[in-house]
Structure formats: structure tokens, C-alpha cells
Computed example of a mutant assay.
Amino acid sequence: MSGLLLSVTGEDAVDELADLADWLRHEPELRGLVAFVGAEPGPGELGALADALAVAVGSGGALTVLAASLRAYLSQPRKSDVRIEVRGPEHSVTVDATRVKDVEALLRETLRHLG
């Protein structure tokens, strides 16, 4: 089992990350595989907001489901631009929903290499 980290950038990054987590957790094949992760709190801090999602993916169909789910998520109407960075152990890619015509094909290829 390997893992990917997904982070969101944009005007409402915290809300978008929460929305993305909720979206992915509604996928039956991804249930139990998505968790918030954040930076370690510094001295004197109680905690930090989550800044990424960890998605556990294996050699099965989880990558395909993740790609299709991200495509659907990115195609939803939004008030602001959203970018999702997908990081694997050795590589990362950022998908800008406003500039990619075939998000699913890009994500499938990227996730295949990252996973």
C-alpha cells in the first residue's frame, strides 16, 4: 500500500480541502483511505490546521477511482480557481482546474506514475 498527499491552493484553500475530503470519502472504494494531515505544531502552539489529505492507494483500482473522483470534483462550478497538488514519494504534479481540458486523462497518467 502506498500513499499520496493532496493539497489545495486557492482563495478558500481550507474550505476546499474540507470539501475535497468530504467528496472523496463518499466514494465507496476510498472510504477509510482518506485522512487529514498537517504540520507538526510549533513550540507554544496547540495544533495546526490540516494542510493536506493523505490517500492510501494500492495496486488495485483505487488510483482509477481517485482519478475519476478528482475529475468530477474539479469539474464542479466554483466561485474561485482551485489547484490540487498530488504528491507521491518521488514526484508531484499540480492540476489547475481552469486550464486543463482533459483532467481525468492527466490525473490517470500522473497517478499511475506517482502510485
Score class of each variant (00 low, 15 high):
6 L>Q: 05
99 R>Q: 08
2 S>I: 05
41 P>K: 13
32 G>Y: 08
35 A>L: 07
90 E>Y: 12
113 H>C: 01
54 A>K: 01
53 L>P: 01
24 L>R: 06
101 K>V: 10
14 V>L: 11
53 L>A: 00
88 G>Q: 03
32 G>L: 08
48 A>E: 11
55 V>A: 08
100 V>F: 01
38 G>D: 02
115 G>K: 01
40 E>G: 06
31 R>D: 06
59 S>E: 15
27 E>R: 13
102 D>G: 02
51 D>I: 01
108 R>A: 10
27 E>N: 09
40 E>D: 08
53 L>W: 00
93 V>L: 15
62 A>P: 02
78 R>T: 11
18 A>D: 13
114 L>T: 01
74 L>K: 05
6 L>E: 06
87 R>Q: 13
48 A>R: 15
61 G>F: 03
108 R>I: 06
92 S>K: 08
50 A>I: 01
109 E>A: 11
113 H>N: 04
71 R>A: 14
65 V>Y: 05
53 L>G: 00
109 E>V: 06
98 T>Y: 00
52 A>M: 02
42 G>I: 09
37 V>K: 06
24 L>W: 04
89 P>G: 13
108 R>E: 12
39 A>V: 03
103 V>T: 08
13 A>E: 04
57 V>D: 02
17 L>P: 02
108 R>S: 13
20 L>S: 14
102 D>R: 11
21 A>Y: 00
82 V>Q: 04
87 R>V: 07
85 E>N: 10
37 V>N: 03
56 A>E: 14
65 V>L: 07
34 V>H: 05
10 G>K: 00
102 D>Q: 13
61 G>K: 02
49 L>M: 07
62 A>M: 14
86 V>I: 13
2 S>V: 07
31 R>A: 15
96 D>P: 06
85 E>Q: 14
87 R>E: 12
72 A>M: 05
73 Y>W: 15
65 V>R: 02
8 V>I: 11
108 R>W: 08
92 S>C: 11
4 L>A: 09
96 D>G: 03
73 Y>R: 11
59 S>C: 10
30 L>V: 14
16 E>P: 03
115 G>M: 01
71 R>M: 04
19 D>P: 01
74 L>D: 07
60 G>T: 09
72 A>W: 06
76 Q>W: 07
90 E>P: 01
91 H>K: 14
37 V>Q: 05
9 T>I: 01
98 T>W: 00
1 M>W: 05
12 D>K: 14
23 W>M: 07
3 G>A: 11
83 R>W: 00
95 V>K: 06
54 A>G: 04
105 A>I: 13
87 R>I: 08
109 E>P: 01
30 L>W: 12
28 P>R: 10
31 R>V: 10
86 V>L: 11
20 L>D: 11
60 G>I: 10
38 G>T: 00
27 E>Y: 11
75 S>T: 10
40 E>S: 04
46 L>R: 10
41 P>L: 15
41 P>V: 13
8 V>S: 02
35 A>Q: 10
106 L>H: 13
